[in-house]
Design a protein around this nucleic acid. Structure first.
Lengths: 210, 210
DNA sequence: TTGTTAAATTAACAATGTTAAGTATCAATA
DNA sequence: TATTGATACTTAACATTGTTAATTTAACAA
């Protein structure tokens, strides 16, 4: 029974309704395990209706990631207010990890799942925005620490430093997400692992003197 | 046309034939994109024949991982001969990364893909074997460095140290594998990132004095 | 009223993992 | 030697999936 014409905002609402339903299911059971029919049923539409808003399942997934990248950046916004750059950098690491570990399946979609590369031009997010781009937030902090002369003398490439810090935190989180129920390894406490990673990286990156 | 009876070794050969064909395809195009029929065609059998050797696709995947875990441990065996423990630890990190980056899709299957947890009891590999268990190799090295008194005084938990080192190298490798074609980030050279991660971790973990 | 467009639906397709049923070959036995 | 039965396969068949095509219904415009 296809009634009314829809205004632009109504279409937008339905779009986000689909996204939210899909994310909830993807996050609970993984992308491949969830069918288009199931997503549609959840919101009371037929499966084919989804194709009126998204080209295919991959496009739907990408739209979800887009909103989650924004959620990540938003969740880190307060942390960016901390005055001391080194403290801010540490807090950013903790905040990032908190996001990853409380939304492990979002995180998996965002950073651990193979999908077509994210091109800035076909994303709704603004690159290099302090509100929308988490990588920019990290780079900003690293840059501040660098300007404050707190890094060791041989560390000059801000991108390289940022990407290494990211890799360290990502390593702890992603290993936790994909391997923590593996019985082969005698896993230590996740917060201890995270803490040690942060300590080690700080000691390895910062000047000795103060 | 189903001929001959098969000896135990002939069955074993067919099993590894399936595994090798499946891995080659999985690695080239991802697990989900490869069909059972395709694997079968590759070796000149019908799809259903695979089910005479593996319960389902997941079991096949798991068998592949099993042989790849062994390949990883084997590839690190020579490194374990290096006399100096710190040098050995560094070389192990490089060796691990080399495996990950030259076999990114194997690596993805092994450490980045969600599958039923690996239980030591239903694996063909021997846990705590210097030849077959890469995590044991890492732990052995870390333990040696610890015994040599080269770690900082506050670092006493060998598992914790090993898992943090693992996380660091895994972070660099897995980020490279799943995100390196992402245009959002201005990626620096992978070997520079790996090098910095190793330097940072060593500086953060080892005693200052020598 | 008539036509056109929008929003949805149902029907249909080809492909997939998997199971069931069938078939040919060998080995042992009666 | 004829029969039995297991083994190693195959082909058929099924339910499910992503997706496309065809269809229906409602609203608006002329």
């Amino acid at each position: 029974m296809p009634p009314k014409l829809k205004t632009a905002t109504e279409r937008e609402q339905l779009r986000t309704l689909i996204i939210d339903a899909a994310r909830e299911l993807f996050v609970a059971r993984g992308v491949d395990a969830v069918t288009m029919r199931e997503i549609a049923k959840r919101i009371g539409y037929s499966a084919t209706s989804i194709y009126l808003h998204f080209a295919d399942k991959e496009a739907l997934l990408k739209a979800i990631c887009d909103t989650d990248f924004l959620a990540l950046a938003t969740s880190l916004k307060n942390i960016m207010q901390i005055a001391d750059p080194v403290e801010r950098m540490q807090a950013l690491g903790r905040g990032y990890a908190a996001f990853a570990l409380t939304h492990p399946n979002h995180y998996r979609l965002m950073f651990m799942t193979a999908h077509a590369p994210i091109q800035p031009e076909n994303s709704n997010l603004q690159q290099n925005s302090a509100e929308q781009d988490a990588y920019f937030q990290l780079k900003t902090v690293v840059s501040a620490v660098h300007s404050a002369g707190r890094f060791r003398a041989d560390l000059q490439d801000v991108d390289l430093i940022a990407q290494t810090i990211w890799a360290g935190v990502h390593g702890v989180c992603s290993l936790q997400i994909s391997m923590s129920c593996d019985k082969w390894v005698n896993w230590t406490d996740i917060s201890a692992r995270l803490q040690l990673m942060q300590t080690v990286m700080l000691r390895g990156l910062l000047r000795e003197d103060k």
